[in-house]
């Protein structure tokens, strides 16, 4: 329970981070969204045994996080906390793919371990990029960007409602759970018999609330259309941001920079 409370404090913190005023924060959200998507697509487009060529891609989340004034420890912690589905599935690779892929002197490394490491790196890169995106952009700005990029308004508007009332309802839910655990004294009380009414009540209250919100909207002239005043502007700097990064990603996709550098260094040492 406490963990979940904390999780939501975390969202609040992400929201807080997203309201800074660094140059990265001030970029049009569309530029950041599009660039991040290009980034993720490029990262996952590598073959499954790729490791070294993926490394330079850390530059994107690192630079954004640094310029966006995001605390690295916080990001790392969040990446570690993330649902581990990818790792659960990935860990089967070393068990199944036992063909030796790398001979490093006497050390032989199976293909499975290589691909597992690759999954790990992809995981950190993609999750990191998504977290950085939201922390330097803010949820509502992402919503605005989605809308401007052609996502249906109905969807965008209820994304915003979801985000707004998430905080309210989670607080309500945690109060209820607290009340339940205070009175169930360790045994019973948390079974399905109490669960139904507990969650059911929350749901009924939620639906009543939705009705009151609708009422409040009607009182202020709601006619089925949500209008938001938020001028988004693509300036040359946004164009530069998108194309600059994308060009770098594509370059890094085709040229294995670490390998080239490593070669140069080992050549030199020889």
């Amino acid at each position: 329970m406490a963990k979940i409370d904390k999780n939501f404090l975390d969202i609040g913190y992400t929201d807080h981070l997203s309201r800074q005023l660094t140059p990265i924060h001030q970029l049009d959200p569309r530029a950041k969204l599009v660039t991040t998507l290009v980034f993720i697509t490029t990262v996952v487009s590598f073959g499954k045994y790729e490791i070294s060529a993926l490394v330079p891609f850390f530059i994107y989340p690192v630079v954004l996080a640094a310029m966006g004034n995001l605390p690295p420890a916080y990001l790392l912690k969040k990446i570690l906390l993330v649902s581990p589905f990818a790792l659960l599935i990935g860990i089967f690779n070393p068990l199944i793919d036992r063909d030796i892929l790398i001979n490093l002197g006497d050390i032989r490394i199976a293909g499975g371990w290589v691909s597992f490491t690759s999954i790990l790196i992809r995981f950190i890169l993609t999750v990191g990029a998504a977290l950085v995106l939201i922390a330097v952009t803010g949820f509502n700005a992402v919503c605005m960007a989605l809308q401007k990029l052609g996502v249906p308004k109905v969807f965008v508007v209820q994304l915003m409602f979801l985000h707004r009332y998430m905080f309210v309802l989670v607080e309500e839910a945690s109060r209820m759970v607290r009340a339940r655990s205070l009175r169930s004294l360790g045994n019973g009380g948390a079974g399905i018999k109490t669960y139904g009414p507990l969650v059911g009540h929350l749901l009924l209250r939620t639906m009543d609330r939705a009705q009151r919100i609708h009422l409040a909207m009607c009182c202020r002239g709601f006619d089925g259309q949500i209008r938001i005043m938020k001028p988004l502007k693509i300036r040359p700097i946004e164009i530069g941001f998108i194309f600059g990064w994308s060009a770098l990603f594509i370059f890094m996709r085709f040229f294995n920079i670490p390998l080239l550098m490593g070669n140069t260094i080992t050549e030199f040492l020889r």
Binding site: F161, L169, L202, R209, A210
Partner: peptide, 12 residues
């Protein structure tokens, strides 16, 4: 419109 958003928050 509000119902969907708020029920989404409820799911959370």
């Amino acid at each position: 419109i509000p119902l969907m958003g708020v029920v989404g928050a409820f799911i959370f």
